[in-house]
Design a protein around this nucleic acid. Structure first.
Lengths: 335, 335
DNA sequence: GCCATCTTGTAAAACGTTTTACAAGATGTT
DNA sequence: AACATCTTGTAAAACGTTTTACAAGATGGC
């Protein structure tokens, strides 16, 4: 019964027109008598009236929805990011529509299209596979504001970035200070630009002392990290920089199973500072990123953009920091 | 420009009425000439027409959306569950709207209301704090199908359950077979019914041999598990059943820091079989639940219910299994 | 050659809001 | 007394679809 109550019913009960009801219920009814306002609100209460979402959106052309595309929900990095988005979005009465794309280009395109159809007011894309083709064909013609995260965009727009280059540099500096010279960096083959920035930051620092890190290819999952342990072992390096924590945790497990002790024989440093890093043995040294805050800022920027499509673009750079735990230590002087 | 193209434009270009366009584009146009069908489709292509979501939903009274409420996205258990839901939902052209409630009753109520306003076609609630009050006041009057997961419901309805009691029993059986007699069970104070089922299953098995497990209260997070280590240590038990893996992992870390070795001095068994369990040291013995499949089944059930509101209720019970790894072992014969 | 029946299409109502433009009466100003 | 200006309210258009009911012409049976 309650599901069928419409604005007309409220108007009838309150003895006013639908216009009046609409105005008052939307906070634009100061110009009406206090009694009228009260009558309308009473009627709403009694009937349990709640405005029809679709009808309302049809005329306002807004859904108060922001789409969020992430590659992998099981990665704690992205769930923290999402939490930041959701929290901030709620402040502005927006709701995030979260979709996992599994780093699958087709799925991603599908979901972008879905979000366009649903007239999402804006989209936060934090997914590697997105092509500029998709953006040009789907997002731009529909004038949907978007924020690309975790990767580059040649297109101008709002940006919320992390100082990835500095992150890579910090990792390198830490290893160098511990006396490591022969090191490896573990990263996926198809590296997004943010990953590449970590890489260049890391290498630049080693280049200063005339060293060149070796590269080990691996997907960004614990399984892949585990499998790469053997390659790492044969490389004979004294330290490894894993481009994310998931990989690092897998790698440590793999080394342990291969009887290589961390950090005695090989130091391991990760990236992201996910919660689990503090619960593995040895506890993972890593680079901390303000992920939650990134989510907050991304949502804020996007909502601002939605409200003011023509404001000048904003750009934000968030800092990273080194978290020293137990998976790195001074290199044994043995060669 | 493309954002503004409407069905009327398509009709004009194709030289037919909007009715014709609507029919053909919705796959109900067999009765039109092949040429007409082709003309309409061509026009759609050329104009890049995509139907307005809100207008369509306004008349069809459906959003092809299912709401999903989860307590904690950072818990791998729930992200697997969500992945199952999303995958299955896509098959039926539905989109999940995922919201994290953080075990906060107010937030939960808010979001249920939000979902009702948005005329979600159904809701999967996997959140502990939900009150029957919320259900009675918001869901039932609006005739929105819902599935309560991870907890009991006194209300009748579709159910997809895990054999939680058996899970608890398996954990107990395993410990008993290893010779453990003095054991503890770690669980939160406000236990949902599924947790209670694990508890009773576990205790029932110990009761058979005349033993009564001690209870240690702890939230279901790694931090809480870590903090509880001290209590566990003082209890003098030889094994602990942690009611989920997150806690178990935290507990193991806490014990390690307190110089209690696992499994030599204390065996630990978890519950859920999250991915990380295989990467901690020692690898975590646990109870595996078919989480992804649960998501799939829940989505399937809900969509069926949406399409056939009056079909008889269905009920499904999925099995659990014991995963023996390295955090449990035979009790040292020392007393 | 007449009537019934397909075939192919359309006009118009309906979905439930928001918003624009207007109206009637009350009040104030000169 | 005449006119402008508030105040309080409303009628109607608009948003972009889907669907129902109907219409005109073609076909076929007798």
């Amino acid at each position: 019964m309650a599901g069928k109550v419409t604005i007309r019913d409220v108007a009838a009960i309150a003895g006013v027109s639908v216009t009046t009801v609409s105005q008052i219920l939307n906070g634009k009814g100061e110009r009406f008598t206090p009694e009228t306002q009260e009558r309308v609100k009473q009627a709403q209460q009694n009937l349990g009236y709640v405005p029809n979402y679709n009808a309302r959106n049809l005329v306002s052309q807004s859904t108060r929805t922001i789409g969020v595309l992430v590659p992998d929900l099981s990665n704690a990095f992205f769930t923290s990011f999402i939490r930041g988005i959701q929290t901030r979005a709620k402040v502005d009465q927006f709701v995030p529509l979260i979709l996992e794309t599994n780093r699958n280009e087709e799925l991603e395109r599908d979901y972008v299209q879905e979000l366009v159809q649903r007239t999402a007011n804006g989209i936060i894309i934090s997914s590697a596979a997105i092509t500029s083709d998709t953006i040009d064909n789907l997002l731009k013609p529909n004038h949907i504001p978007y924020i690309l995260f975790d990767q580059n965009t040649l297109t101008s727009g709002d940006r919320v970035d992390i100082n990835e280059h500095e992150g890579g540099r910090l990792a390198a500096q830490h290893l160098i200070e511990l006396g490591h010279r022969q090191v490896a960096i573990m990263m996926p083959k198809q590296a997004t630009l943010n990953i590449q920035a970590r890489y260049t930051g890391f290498c630049a620092e080693f280049q200063k002392i005339g060293e060149l890190p070796k590269t080990v290819l691996s997907d960004m999952t614990p399984q892949a990290g585990y499998s790469a342990a053997d390659t790492v072992r044969k490389l004979g390096v004294s330290a490894v920089f894993a481009i994310n924590d998931e990989m690092a945790i897998g790698l440590m497990k793999g080394l342990k199973d291969a009887k290589v002790s961390v950090p005695e024989q090989v130091s391991v440093i990760g990236y992201d500072d996910v919660e689990m890093g503090a619960y593995v043995t040895p506890m993972l040294t890593t680079i901390h990123q303000p992920i939650y805050e990134m989510g907050v800022e991304a949502a804020k920027l996007l909502v601002d953009r939605i409200h003011q499509p023509d404001a000048p673009y904003e750009s934000l750079m968030l800092p990273v920091s080194l978290v020293v735990r137990q998976s790195t230590r001074r290199r044994e002087i043995s060669d």
